[in-house]
Design a protein around this nucleic acid. Structure first.
Lengths: 256, 256
DNA sequence: AAGTGGTCTAGACCACCAT
DNA sequence: TGGTGGTCTAGACCACTTA
């Protein structure tokens, strides 16, 4: 199924502007996997014919999706669907830097445990688990750099959505976790939100990080979303901030 | 001095696009106070004449500044310079919500102490203090809601930039701190960045927040910037996260 | 050289807001 | 009703990338 085989019907008299209708049509193509991560989308001239509008309208639609981080335009090459990889992880989803440094660091990630469990009430609710499968994977990782670990990461995802996932598959991925979601399960993380507080380290976390029990840690609760704001991942990070900081950078973002 | 009295010379053969040149000219008008917070800027047709370009080019320049949060377009009314007030504080600069709540809360702010001090080496460097005045204000506030305080906020700003600031003036402001900067000192905070880690509460902070010494707190180091990424404020917040969370929301921001 | 997105034009018409 | 920004057109030409 190619996007160029579809018939789109943009309503010229709608309350919603045509550029937004086109943005939504493209967004749905992404959601329905007619357009896939990394793929080159049709060029602007083709889209003009496909939607039967002028080029400025197409460009506004694409520009919006680019601002959302879903499409990437490359002059001279074409427009591509965003793709999760080591690079995007580091710059969009890894929010730590060594103390007194501005440079991001590529962390080591090491699996601690991989389990399949009955979901809690809260997990059922947040992940909106179906009645016929209320199991979840609990995946614990430790992250760090320079032979030291600072972060314990607990990932909770629904078994229903990641049915064929195995520990072996998880360990043998040769890319980021979000890349695995994207390529093996067609689940594309579009965005996330985070909440932060302090908690004392429990026994297990303390052992993994080589610190005392009750050492104060950052607890970061991250919610991972896919298309249409559907929640697909609950991630809880416990962070020992002896040598690293959580960062929220400022961008003086220019551009369209 | 009105912007319409100026002569702008947009280079049609420059490497930098005309829309970016116009954006930079407008940005400099803001920096030089030719355009002030809250002010209505000339309408698009006037700007077209002023810069001698077509309306699409003007709109792209304004759209960029709108994305940066510096201008606000209101259909039917005009385009205005962004202005710091209670509303913008709550939605752009106050990053806390009560636990298990999504709604933002308007915090109480209460002055703890107001002092004028010799700057430390680090403060001199970060704030880029001039050789002839290396003093800073240290302003401590406590913030909270529902008759309880959760945050101790230390603000460090240069005396050179806020020369006439007094405790009385600070206390009697009837708006946010950034509004005071903007209206009394013509210093406009354009953006900020933050770093977070955990620290144990020291004696003073514990007393102010009514907690035990060494209670784990979030320490948030915020850097406040004005035009051209000049640092004008160092803010350190100590947060007791018993009932509140630091939030980093996700926006599925559409728009231009 | 061919193909892509980026910039820019010179309008037209619409939706919204105040008076 | 008059003025504002929002949408949309149908092009032209430029800058960048790959071959």
């Amino acid at each position: 199924m190619s996007i160029t085989d579809l018939n789109f019907d943009i309503d010229r008299n709608s309350q919603t502007p045509m550029w937004l209708q086109i943005r939504d049509e493209l967004y749905n193509c992404l959601h329905q996997e007619i357009l896939r991560p990394g793929q080159l989308i049709p060029n602007e001239k083709t889209l003009v014919e496909l939607f039967n509008v002028s080029i400025g309208t197409v460009r506004k639609a694409i520009g919006t999706l680019e601002n959302e981080g879903i499409l990437i335009r490359k002059q001279g090459l074409g427009t591509f669907v965003f793709e999760h990889d080591a690079n995007s992880f580091q710059f969009k989803y890894f929010h730590f830097v060594p103390r007194n440094s501005e440079e991001t660091v590529i962390p080591n990630v090491e699996l601690v445990s991989f389990e399949r469990k009955k979901a809690t009430k809260s997990e059922i609710e947040i992940l909106n688990l179906p009645a016929d499968n209320r199991n979840v994977f609990h995946i614990y990782n430790k992250l760090g750099f320079r032979n030291k670990f600072y972060i314990v990461d607990k990932i909770v995802i629904s078994v229903a959505k990641f049915l064929s996932l195995t520990e072996e598959m998880y360990v043998n991925r040769n890319n980021t976790i979000y890349n695995l979601y994207q390529n093996k399960f067609n689940i594309f993380i579009t965005d996330c939100s985070e909440k932060i507080r302090t908690v004392p380290a429990n026994g297990e976390t303390a052992k993994i990080l080589g610190i005392d029990i009750d050492t104060p840690l950052l607890r970061i609760d991250r919610t991972g979303y896919t298309y249409h704001n559907e929640i697909v991942e609950i991630r809880t990070s416990y962070v020992h901030t002896s040598d690293i900081d959580y960062v929220r950078p400022h961008f003086s973002a220019l551009g369209e």
